[in-house]
Amino acid sequence: MIDLGPHAIFIIAAYAGVTLAVAALIVWTRLDARRVAKKLADLEARGIRRRSAGPA
């Protein structure tokens, strides 16, 4: 690791905060997608489909 000088704590905190927030955004986006896809699959498994899609 390079020497970040006397203000290293501020630089490390900035990069750590951004990393955590970006990781949280990615995880939240994926979990939300998975949750909604599961709900849709459950509904379709129960035979509920769009009327335009015709009978199941």
Binding site: T29, D32, A33, A37, L43, R46, R50
Partner: peptide, 27 residues
């Protein structure tokens, strides 16, 4: 580009969510 990826993925999820809401209403 990270924003573009997350935005596209979130848009796909929103399309599915609206389909879920429509199917729940229909049910």
């Amino acid at each position: 580009v990270l924003f573009l990826v997350l935005h596209l993925k979130a848009m796909h999820t929103e399309v599915s969510r609206r389909r879920v809401m429509a199917l729940e209403r229909q049910a």
